[in-house]
Amino acid sequence: MNDPAIAAHGLRKSYGDKVVLDGVDLSVPEGTIFSLLGPNGAGKTTAVKILTTLISPDPASGAIRVGGHDLATAPQAVRAAIGVTGQFSAVDNLITGEENMLLMADLHHLSKVEGRRTAARLIERFDLVDAARRPASTYSGGMKRRLDLAMTLVGNPRVIFLDEPTTGLDPRSRHDMWVIIRELVADGATVFLTTQYLEEADELADRIAVLHDGRIAAEGTASELKRLVPGGHVRLRFTDPDAYRAAARALGRASRDDEALALRVPSDGGQRDLRAVLDLLDANAIEADELTVHTPDLDDVFFALTSPRRPLESVR
């Protein structure tokens, strides 16, 4: 059995009295995308900084292994296995994109020929050919982020950390980044992704952990997480007030919206549940003008889990 690419037990970090990470357990299998989801200030970046050896965890933390190496005893081996693209671009703004790439090639101890080839290949792949000879300070946000990621990939890392890789990008650049991230995993890498966008986690991640106040509030696949919160329903809308009233009588448990002539019938969105509603309508010869199934989305999960007013029960 393979070691997980990332395994952390009881990850803790505090600055003075402020507890940022309060015992976080993480396990990310090789070749998957794992998303750490949370609002600003939840501790996502701190977790990435620790897992990438940038800062040290509190001594009370348990064992942390990344890429099969222990973070405390073999940090250089961890560094050799990982690539990091942080939230703030980690490019040298004073030199050109190409020079940045060659700098990375040198630091990964590639030969001159190999370095040039790798740089050229990645510059091409990340669509930076035209900009390669301009100083990185002149790049747009999306270009900088692409250069940043291209630099991360020079060393062929097996575990890639992406800290909010699409924050501040326009929709187009964001979509491009998603395509790139999927390709990374297709090539066999493991991706640890932090994001504050639910859509992004839903779109990309095999598993999602919701980080809230320094703890994992919930963890699972997107659909597992969605099942955690109630709120699924079938919505029926009518144009004929008589049909509306008849339906309301037939479906006793529906909540009524008399203004819109719409009914909300609680439902898990499953086939059986849906058929029961339809059968009931058919039996009473009622025809709805519009039927929509609403399953809870990650937004519902997120707000339910991270709402400060609602005390959290353990949902793991």
Binding site: Q76, G86, S89, A90, L107, H108
Partner: peptide, 13 residues
């Protein structure tokens, strides 16, 4: 203050 220094710190150099 440049992000590149953080990158250097996470590299096996």
């Amino acid at each position: 203050t440049e992000g590149i220094i953080a990158r250097f710190r996470t590299m096996a150099i």
